[in-house]
Design a protein around this nucleic acid. Sequence first.
RNA 1: CGCGGGGUGGAGAAGUGGUAUCUCGUCGGGCUCAUAACCCGAAGAUCGGGGGUUCGAAGCCCCCCCCCGCUACCA
Length: 715
Amino acid sequence: MSDRPLRSAPLLVTSALPYANGPLHLGHLAGAYLPADLFVRYQRLAGRDVVWVCGSDEHGAAIEIRARREGVSPQSIVDRYHAELAAAFEGFGIAFDVYGRTTSDTHRQTSQDLFRSIEAAHGFVRKTTTQLYDPEAGLFLADRFVQGTCPVCGYDSAYGDQCENCGSTLSPDDLVDPRSTLSGATPERRETTHWYLPLGDLQPQLEGWIGTKTDWKPNVLGQVRSWFQAGLEDRSMTRDLDWGVPVPSDVEGETEGKVLYVWFDAPIGYLSVTKEWAQAQGDEDLWRRYWQVHEDGTEPDLVHFIGKDNIVFHCLTFPAILMTANAAQPSLPQFVLPAQVPANEFLNLEGQKLSTSRGWAVWAHEALEAFDADLLRYALAVGLPETKDADFTWADFQNRVNGELADVVGNFANRALTFAARYCDGEVPRLDAPTDKDAAMLDALAAAPGQVAAAYEAYRLREAVALTVDLARKGNQYLQETEPWKTRNSDERAMRNSVHVALQVTAGLSILLEPVVPGVASRLREMLALGAVRSSTEAGTDGLGWGDVGPELLDAGHALGEPGILVRKVEDEEVEAQLQQLKDRAAAADAAKAADPDSEPEVPYAALGDEITFDQFTPLDFRVGEIVAADLHPNADKLLRFDVDLGFETRQILSGVREFFAPEDLLGKRVVVVANLAPRAIRGLESNGMILFAEDRDGTLRPVEAQGEPGAVVR
RNA sequence: CGCGGGGUGGAGAAGUGGUAUCUCGUCGGGCUCAUAACCCGAAGAUCGGGGGUUCGAAGCCCCCCCCCGCUACCA
């Protein structure tokens, strides 16, 4: 099949962990998720042993500080966005093998274990420095969280690391009248001790390793060389924060109030999520197959899909962590270092940089309400920011979908299928004495999987997509040249050959299109009645795969399914509405900012759940209940325990709202209770029902209060 | 400021020394099986600007301009 041998070593693909403090937008998708999805779906179809992992990055100062500002717990923020992110990925057909999160137990253990073993082998150095401290909020501040007047341009809201107005690089000490963005207090300097990764010492080793990576992208290598040239410095791998993976308390030194730096723990998230995947497969050690050198010397390929802003962490910091971990335990299986880091550039929107605070973004969940995921996937895929920043415009979207996906691909398939349905009894006609034109078309079909595969293997994804569409374009040319609608009356054998060949091309397309537009590909296979094609979302080598694409996918006499419209066109009004929505939101964000310069960016409403029927609704029994007793659950730190009077009886109900309410806050309130929920024991106490709470977009929780007597039916 | 990536017909891209290619758009023609679609042809780029090397440069060297990113204690 492919004109190059496929690598047989296991492949582990990662996509940058999205930070769980905002929803997913098209820029994220184009950067690290859609490219990886195309790549991985191709690899699965090609039969490669591949696992693709991702998850929410839920730690770090930004989330802790946001939680403080909003007066909610960090956990409530990440819980909300973790669920939203996972749902948006699913809606977009981003088919990770596993989507985890860095607040999991597995992750805490994995990152602590790695930290411990590096520490035990003296892989860190401890250094004491002075850091900025907010005496009112009671925590250390990153430079980013100090604001003051820029000494260069006089802008009064410059950050401690940079002035957004004039672009000057700053240190917090440079600021005139510095203040904490949290409390407004003047920061103090305090001493603190942290664990540093000695990157300076590791530089020769890193340089030697990077030196072998001749096939990496120029933007990645250039950036890395730039770092080497400047000289690496030791970097602190711990922080003074409450929110994060605690520094293991059994290591030497003051660990109180210290957590792992997010860029220490986030890449380890790839590892811990793989472990969770392995557990789900029923083989706890299966992760090793994808992360460590095998006993026979086989090295799995580790591939990180990221945006260009993450290059240093994936090409230097994380490899340095893995190297150090290997050196710490030389007798144990050794971790592999990344084989490839296909970093993408950025996606702009309608000619401007994306900005969530300025309302300049297309949210994934909103776009999916208006358009089938495949249409968005296609438009993004042909315009991926592979070598330079790309621009997404709704006009381009419409053009690409209508002009290429619908007109070239969809219409070609439709021509072949309707012709076969009308003039060949809905069957694949026999190929008989093919002409040069027939043979040339079949040759092109036979060559296509190898050509497209080569583009995928080289991470040239735009090219892979373009080559795929080219096959349909060749199909249209072929039909135009052989004119079966004419030979139908003059030379039936020629007509049947044309239809046979066109159908084989269509069948090939139904597999080659699968990584890009899986829904379209699947509908096409339905119309062809082509079953038994391997899944591109799950492991396994059963069924037809990439290597089977060729001139003999369909047997003569094979009965076809019903032809139909494969790809609908995007109407002018639809893209106009999107553009208008974008402009409206940007204007609203502007207005809000003008009214209140410190206001938080507009947060979107949670996506609406799937529609249910009336019959699914009626079984739910809501009642008014009065909370007559409220206290803490003795064995759970997130739960409150209530006695709720439902009139006919008083029952015990547990709620995971302790981080939002003290028991006395809710005592005496009349609330809405789901009264016929099956009882469930949680941490030793039984809960008989559920109390409903309303969650604002900013995470604020309030009980759903009700009027009416206890026991009143709510409907 | 320093470093890295990029700047190719109206738009998006390919092209690392030898007649500038592809897709969309525009214009003209053809076909009629098909989603007002498909096929063919044409116009349109002094390859960001300037200088240099060479028989010959988009490509190599020097200077400059523009866009994006990085400059670790945000992610």
